[in-house]
Nucleic acid binder design. Structure first.
Length: 177
DNA sequence: GTTGCGATGCGCT
DNA sequence: GCGCATCGCAACA
């Protein structure tokens, strides 16, 4: 399901982003997933039906968002890691002053900032509410690699991006602390 | 292009 | 308390 989200358009508050990079999280059995330790208040939306937005707050200042993809109870989701702003460029620029156009949605927290997606949007229905997701034709040239920034999770090639896309986030190896 | 580091606050053990 | 599905900036190549 994750690669099918590549090329999809996510629209909110006057900005549309074309998704170019995603990462899959496979339910409660995935040690890298927020759902690994079971149902909590924060990850509750992951355990719900597909087609909703799971938003979370991290590092004291950033919001990232996922599309829930599995059926109720499974807790599978896909993190939206990067995209390209294709509409509402002026609005997105105003939300991220100092950024180049290429970097506007290059990274999961930057993407949410460009779209003005916040914690309050956790659980939003992507087919009905103010946030809309429209799938595109399947992308043919897809690259895969290890997920970014996880510790204590086995390396699984569950990061997908459109080959050659410049809006894909730079790979930063997890830093030993 | 790369690497290193601090910011900052919530969720969970 | 500790760790985090990150980012922006500075320094270097």
């Amino acid at each position: 399901m994750a690669p099918r989200l590549l090329g999809a358009r996510l629209t909110h508050a006057g900005v549309t982003v074309r998704i170019t990079e995603v990462e899959a999280y496979a339910g409660a059995a995935d040690p890298g997933s927020h759902a690994y330790r079971g149902l909590t208040r924060r990850n509750a939306v992951m355990f719900g039906p597909a087609g909703r937005l799971y938003c979370y707050f991290t590092y004291g200042m950033h919001v990232c968002c996922n599309v829930v993809t599995g059926p109720e109870g499974e807790a599978s989701a896909v993190l939206l890691r990067a995209g390209e702003v294709v509409d509402g460029l002026e609005t997105a620029r105003a939300r991220r002053p100092g950024s180049t156009d290429r970097d506007l949605a290059r990274g999961p927290a930057r993407l949410c900032r460009a779209l003005d997606i916040e914690l309050a949007h956790d659980g939003s229905d992507l087919g009905a509410g103010p946030i809309r997701l429209e799938l595109d034709e399947p992308v043919l040239d897809v690259s895969t690699g290890p997920r970014v920034g996880l510790r204590g999770a086995p390396e699984r090639p569950w990061r997908f991006w459109m080959t050659g896309e410049r809006s894909v986030s730079a790979y930063r190896p997890a830093k030993p602390r």
